[in-house]
Amino acid sequence: TLTSRLSKCHKHHTLQIELSLFILSSGGAELLFDGVKKHHVTLPSQSEPWDVKQLLVWIQRNLLKERPELFVQGDTVRPGILVLINDADWELMGELDYRLQDQDNVVFISTLHGG
């Protein structure tokens, strides 16, 4: 089913539809989002499929309220921040290269002592 979903996605990207995602931050990471844990966001349509790497850039520009260096470092998340995609370890999903699907759940959990 996944491959079919992927191919569907490929078809879709030519149609340039928007992506709707659920983003959750916890463990103190939410502080950087003005204390808001749950976000329902819509990513604008673009010619290529969205991947997590691009999502991080988008979050940095559109969701983060302060201190971006406490969330993103380089082109990935700050060490100590864990990522789950649809309730699975993002390491199993291809990390930054994972191609986001409509209605995906992305969770960021800070494991750092002060959040």
Binding site: S26, G27, G28, E30, L31, R67, L70, L112, H113, G114, G115
Partner: peptide
């Protein structure tokens, strides 16, 4: 989540 001296 409770902020501590290290927070931010």
């Amino acid at each position: 989540f409770i902020p501590n001296l290290d927070t931010k």
